[in-house]
Simulated scan of single mutants.
Amino acid sequence: MGGPPGWERFDSCWARLDRAAEHLHAFGEAWAAFLADHPYRVFVEVDDAGSGVVGIRRERPLPKRLPLLIGEFLYELRATLDNCLYEVAVIHSAQNPPPGASQLQFPIYSTPADWGRNVYRLKHLSDEHRQMLERIQPYQAQRQDLNCLRVLNDLARIDRHRTMHLVGACVVEGGLAVKAPPGSEITRSRRVERPVIDEAGDIATFVVDPWSRGQQVQLYPDLVLEVEIAEMAADRPWGSLANRLKALHKAVTEYTTGLAAYALGYTEPDVGK
């Protein structure tokens, strides 16, 4: 990554950002290849009481590298922020390792109290850098659930300390029609909002009235599937998963270049909320 004099001091950050972009591209290619083989099947079932369900079933194994690529993408972004702050501390202190290196970490806090309890970790940075870091904290955002640092931190923590993210298909648009047998009608139909289909999952329920054993309903699906992770399926403010992950990469790039530029003596950039 080119830049002004001294930019090479942050080469580990630029390399990690490039690597994260590679992981994101590889994830998109792996999902497209998997979906091209039509691994999901839409089905309909009706019980003896006439209660029906429309579901989607995955009929081929999900590639293990999909959740791994997500985890590696998140790791590189989180590590970029920590690497950046470490080099900022080295520049400010003119020491390597800098004072307090074992306590230093890029701060991401959801409350002012959390910031206050942990600001000692940044005591060897300049006042200006602490102010810059405080301005971009999730608790400063109008909606923390849309704050990129908060999203990144939560997702990376789950992947690192709990388990890999559940990756699967999500119905994002399209129609779904169920036709009742002659003399009956579909009642009390309901779509299930954006479930992430791992092995199988319901996407709609309905009732056929009247219903007799041996009757059949006709299913006419016209659905669009996208890749999704379970922790982000409920709210998709930036559209596709690809768009949201690109937004995280863009935010980390902006925060890193902003902090690096100031540490190297250039005009403080806009690194607002």
Results as ranks from 00 to 15, higher is better:
residue 5 P to D: 03
residue 7 W to F: 12
residue 8 E to H: 14
residue 9 R to K: 12
residue 9 R to P: 00
residue 9 R to S: 08
residue 10 F to C: 11
residue 14 W to I: 00
residue 18 D to Y: 13
residue 19 R to T: 12
residue 21 A to K: 11
residue 22 E to T: 10
residue 23 H to M: 09
residue 23 H to P: 01
residue 24 L to C: 00
residue 24 L to W: 04
residue 25 H to T: 13
residue 26 A to Q: 13
residue 27 F to M: 11
residue 29 E to L: 10
residue 31 W to G: 07
residue 32 A to W: 08
residue 32 A to L: 12
residue 34 F to V: 05
residue 35 L to W: 12
residue 35 L to V: 09
residue 36 A to N: 15
residue 38 H to P: 00
residue 39 P to K: 07
residue 39 P to C: 11
residue 44 V to K: 04
residue 46 V to H: 02
residue 47 D to N: 11
residue 49 A to C: 08
residue 55 G to N: 03
residue 56 I to L: 12
residue 56 I to P: 07
residue 57 R to S: 09
residue 58 R to P: 05
residue 60 R to H: 14
residue 61 P to G: 08
residue 62 L to E: 09
residue 64 K to H: 13
residue 68 L to M: 15
residue 74 L to R: 05
residue 76 E to S: 11
residue 80 T to W: 04
residue 81 L to A: 09
residue 82 D to H: 09
residue 82 D to Q: 14
residue 83 N to Q: 15
residue 85 L to I: 10
residue 85 L to E: 00
residue 89 A to Q: 02
residue 91 I to V: 13
residue 93 S to F: 00
residue 97 P to H: 00
residue 98 P to G: 03
residue 101 A to P: 01
residue 105 Q to T: 07
residue 106 F to Y: 15
residue 107 P to S: 03
residue 109 Y to K: 08
residue 110 S to D: 02
residue 110 S to W: 13
residue 113 A to T: 10
residue 114 D to H: 11
residue 116 G to A: 11
residue 117 R to C: 06
residue 119 V to S: 04
residue 119 V to Y: 08
residue 121 R to Y: 03
residue 121 R to I: 10
residue 121 R to G: 03
residue 121 R to C: 08
residue 121 R to L: 04
residue 123 K to T: 09
residue 127 D to Y: 04
residue 132 M to F: 09
residue 133 L to E: 11
residue 139 Y to V: 07
residue 140 Q to F: 01
residue 142 Q to M: 03
residue 142 Q to E: 12
residue 143 R to L: 12
residue 145 D to A: 10
residue 145 D to H: 04
residue 149 L to N: 15
residue 150 R to Q: 12
residue 150 R to W: 08
residue 152 L to H: 01
residue 154 D to P: 06
residue 158 I to Y: 12
residue 159 D to I: 05
residue 161 H to F: 01
residue 164 M to I: 12
residue 165 H to I: 04
residue 170 C to Q: 14
residue 172 V to R: 08
residue 174 G to L: 07
residue 174 G to C: 13
residue 175 G to F: 10
residue 175 G to I: 03
residue 176 L to E: 02
residue 177 A to S: 11
residue 183 G to F: 05
residue 185 E to Q: 10
residue 188 R to L: 08
residue 188 R to A: 14
residue 188 R to I: 06
residue 189 S to H: 09
residue 191 R to Y: 11
residue 192 V to C: 01
residue 193 E to L: 14
residue 199 E to V: 15
residue 199 E to D: 13
residue 203 I to K: 04
residue 203 I to G: 02
residue 205 T to E: 11
residue 206 F to L: 10
residue 207 V to D: 08
residue 207 V to M: 06
residue 209 D to K: 15
residue 209 D to M: 13
residue 214 G to D: 02
residue 216 Q to V: 05
residue 216 Q to K: 00
residue 217 V to F: 05
residue 218 Q to S: 15
residue 219 L to K: 01
residue 222 D to S: 15
residue 225 L to Y: 09
residue 226 E to Q: 13
residue 234 A to E: 10
residue 236 R to S: 00
residue 236 R to W: 01
residue 241 L to T: 11
residue 241 L to K: 06
residue 242 A to C: 03
residue 246 K to P: 00
residue 250 K to S: 14
residue 250 K to N: 14
residue 252 V to M: 01
residue 253 T to I: 07
residue 253 T to H: 12
residue 254 E to R: 12
residue 254 E to I: 13
residue 255 Y to A: 07
residue 255 Y to N: 05
residue 256 T to M: 10
residue 256 T to G: 09
residue 259 L to A: 07
residue 260 A to W: 03
residue 264 L to Q: 04
residue 264 L to T: 06
residue 265 G to D: 02
residue 265 G to W: 07
residue 271 V to N: 03
residue 272 G to D: 06
residue 272 G to W: 06
